[in-house]
Amino acid sequence: MSKEIYLNPKIFSNTEETEQLSIHQGFDEGLLIAGDNDERVVALCSDPTRSEKVSLFAKEYPGRFFKNDLAEESMFSVALGMATMGKIPFVLLPKLFSPGKNCEQIKAAMYCNNVPVKIIGSHSGVFAGSYKGTLQTIEDIALIRSMSQMTILAPCDAIEAQKATVYAAQIDGPVYIRFPQEETSIITTDETPFEIGKAEVFFRPDGDVDVGVIASGHLVYNAIRAAKDLDDEGVRVRVLNLSTIKPMDIDAVVKLGTQTGKIVIIEECQTVGGVGSAVAEVLAQIAPAKMRFIGACDMSGISDGRMPHPGIDIENIKNTIRELYVQ
């Protein structure tokens, strides 16, 4: 385990003992800090009384908070209007509406104009709480990655989400931040470094390595746990936290690909056009490697809020790494 990045020392305790916190809460705290730092920060929310709430910011700055209800298509155009008046709007929408229903508005409003509107996907991935099946957003990375000038962040836990939100407010351009609705394990600490566009090695930073794992979002936890178990079996795994999906830390990805020649991608979205595709686009050109993709492979979300997705649980991750290791 990397000492320099000050990860949570309880990370290898029983899952029940590892502190669980909603990444949404970390975002909420980060938005309040961003609001304290810059009076131009405003928030738009479809319904603050429900789970996509921005309670801390709305309570502290009611005059900079706007409830758009379910006018979800116009919401991003409204945000563009605010941005042209000098605001830095954070737009919260749940479910597949964002990005999805509003892709035309995002295209026209945000990246065509390169305004500093921040899109918050608060129910992304398969762990979307009560939002199941067709309401789950697992196509978001593929959709929004195709939009130029868009920065895409997937914080691994609540603490990193707080930092990501604060830094996102400082970027002069559109940003998409995605996270699940449910509570996830705390991986990092306040001292863990975070920088947009930089990927950090979270497990086995030094020494020889057999397989590289690139994980995004809260699945970094499963990746680290799997790597630790395999360490005991003699399979040396290095885990990279790809918290910024775009722009990608090409140096870190290429370095891992060169060191191992074997890369496993773990993502909580469609593998078609998702994080793995983004990594493969880089490696195929600079450091071709054998790759395996773990994620929603051409399927709709099936989480019922309790059971993990069959492909992204620790056991399956270990099996996939073992299979690639013997190749």
Partner: peptide
């Protein structure tokens, strides 16, 4: 280039 500027005008007025 795409329609929908009334929503943007609403956002400007609210800001």
């Amino acid at each position: 280039g795409l329609l929908g500027s009334l929503s943007q005008a609403v956002g400007m007025t609210i800001a």
